[in-house]
Lab assay of single mutants.
Amino acid sequence: NKFNKELQWATWEILNLPNLNEEQVKAFIDSLRDDPSQSANLLAEAKKLNDAQA
């Protein structure tokens, strides 16, 4: 389904953001699992944090 694909994509993207530490990655992945419908928003937040920590 749509959420499953978005969840998989967001998870992959977050795992590959180079500037997030392990705790941050875990927190984003946990949030994705808690509410897959928020995957686009969570991915945007993760990318923003990744850029800020570059």
Rank of each mutant, 00 (worst) to 15 (best):
N50D: 08
L42D: 00
E23H: 10
W9V: 07
F3S: 14
D34V: 12
A40T: 07
V25M: 10
A46S: 02
W9Y: 11
E23S: 12
L15P: 01
A54M: 11
L43Y: 08
S39L: 14
K48N: 07
K47E: 03
W9K: 07
D35Q: 09
K5I: 04
E22Q: 11
E23I: 12
N4A: 07
N16W: 04
L7S: 04
L17S: 02
S39N: 07
L32K: 00
L20F: 01
N41G: 06
V25G: 03
V25S: 08
L43G: 01
Q38G: 07
A10E: 02
P18F: 11
I29M: 08
D34F: 13
F28V: 02
F3T: 14
A44P: 02
K2T: 11
Q38H: 06
I14A: 01
I14F: 03
N4Q: 13
L32Y: 02
N41F: 15
Q53Y: 09
P36Q: 04
E23A: 13
I29Q: 03
S39A: 09
A46W: 02
L32W: 02
D51T: 10
N16V: 04
S39D: 02
I14Y: 01
L7K: 02
E45S: 11
L32H: 01
A52P: 02
N21K: 11
N41Q: 09
S31N: 10
F28N: 00
Q38N: 10
K48S: 10
N21I: 08
E22F: 09
L43D: 00
I29K: 03
N16E: 04
Q24G: 00
N19Y: 13
L49G: 01
D51S: 13
K48T: 06
S37H: 06
L42S: 02
A54S: 12
E22L: 11
L49K: 05
K48R: 13
E45I: 14
N16K: 12
N41D: 07
I14T: 01
P36K: 02
A10N: 03
N1T: 04
P36D: 02
L20M: 02
A40H: 07
L7E: 07
D34R: 14
N21V: 06
A46E: 00
N21Y: 10
S31F: 09
K5L: 03
L7G: 03
K26M: 09
N50V: 01
F3W: 05
D51L: 15
A40W: 14
Q53V: 08
Q38K: 13
E23L: 09
N19K: 04
K5R: 03
N50G: 02
R33A: 12
N19F: 09
I14Q: 01
L42Y: 08
K5V: 06
K5Y: 05
A54Q: 11
W9M: 11
E45N: 09
E6V: 07
N1E: 12
L49V: 09
L49D: 02
A44V: 10
D30F: 14
Q38V: 05
D51E: 12
E45T: 12
K2S: 15
N21A: 11
R33T: 14
T11W: 06
A44K: 09
K5Q: 14
Q24K: 02
N19E: 04
K2G: 15
I29G: 01
Q24M: 04
N4V: 07
L17I: 01
K47H: 09
D30K: 14
N50Q: 02
K26W: 13
L43F: 06
L17W: 02
A10Y: 12
P18N: 09
N19T: 04
D35R: 09
R33Y: 15
D51P: 01
S37N: 07
A52L: 12
Q24V: 03
D30Q: 14
D51H: 10
